[in-house]
């Protein structure tokens, strides 16, 4: 680990770069040295079999999991971490972590809206208390986002009164309300009934088209193929193959990737 305050990411990755990430849970080694990067405006899809480490990798980016080793840059800024004995890495500055998290939106498989707050309250909470946005401005921002995701008439409803698709759209709006420079999606449609998947994918496609940098873990291959500028195939804790969607889906060079796509069991 260098002592340099902020070395630039080694192989590009102006929006996001991870280098040689390792992560184990007990004896189970989940990430075995993953490197990946995204330039501004990139939409990167991560695909791979269940248990291959997709969620773990995504969760390392905003330090919901701390990697055992490796380096992470968000928007060109290195997240400073130090070795803490046998516990592996720990962030050097929680302030830096909180600040970076506030610029990285995350959308979870299970929505994770705050159930004791209305949709509107969910959307203005972090802008007001984390970004210190004036209340009026936070509400205006939230309203225009709700308009965009088609939930303006649900603004005063509680999450329990919304369908899964509506909850996920509200959760996406909550993340966007921070005006993040990077959006992370962890299987945003996997918990939804099939007939609700479309409305959520439509919202995500919409955000992709406005040029926001995104990283999406998904099992929706048709969607990944359509929106991505780059696809990463993770296998057993390693990047097995990566490339533009046409190449990866039409002519994968790795045998494992070919098998994974052919089996259709995602």
């Amino acid at each position: 680990m260098t002592e340099d305050e902020n070395p630039p990411p080694p192989n590009g990755g102006s929006a996001l770069a991870v280098e040689d990430l390792h992560k184990s849970f007990g004896k189970l080694e989940v990430l075995k040295g993953v490197s990946a990067s995204a330039e501004e405006g990139d939409v990167v899809s991560i695909i791979g079999a269940s248990g291959s480490g997709k969620s773990t990798m995504l969760r390392c980016i905003n330090l919901l999991e701390t990697p055992d080793s490796g380096r992470i840059w968000v928007g060109g800024e290195l997240i400073r971490m130090k070795q803490a004995g046998r516990r592996g890495l720990v962030p050097e500055s929680q302030r830096q972590v909180d600040r970076i998290r506030s610029t990285v939106g995350m959308v979870f498989q299970s929505f994770n809206l705050w159930t004791h707050m209305t949709v509107m309250q969910n959307l203005v909470e972090a802008p007001i208390h984390v970004l210190k946005l004036p209340k009026v401005e936070a509400h205006e921002r939230a309203e225009s986002l709700l308009q965009r995701v088609g939930l303006i008439d649900k603004r005063d409803h509680y999450p329990a009164h919304l369908s899964g698709g509506q909850q996920q759209r509200a959760a996406i709006a909550r993340a966007l309300a921070m005006e993040p420079q990077l959006m992370l999606f962890d299987e945003p449609t996997s918990a939804l009934d099939p007939e609700l998947v479309g409305e959520v994918l439509k919202v995500i496609r919409d955000i992709a088209e406005e040029g926001r940098t995104m990283m999406i873990v998904t099992h929706e291959m048709a969607f990944a193929r359509e929106v991505s500028s780059k696809v990463i195939f993770l296998h057993d804790g390693l990047v097995e193959e990566e490339g533009p969607p046409e190449q990866l889906f039409n002519a994968p060079s790795s045998e494992r990737c070919r098998q994974f796509l052919a089996a259709g069991e995602y």
Partner: peptide, 11 residues
């Protein structure tokens, strides 16, 4: 998950 959502927003 609700706690994690708060952490992920930088609280």
């Amino acid at each position: 998950g609700e706690v994690e959502a708060a952490r992920a927003l930088g609280m």
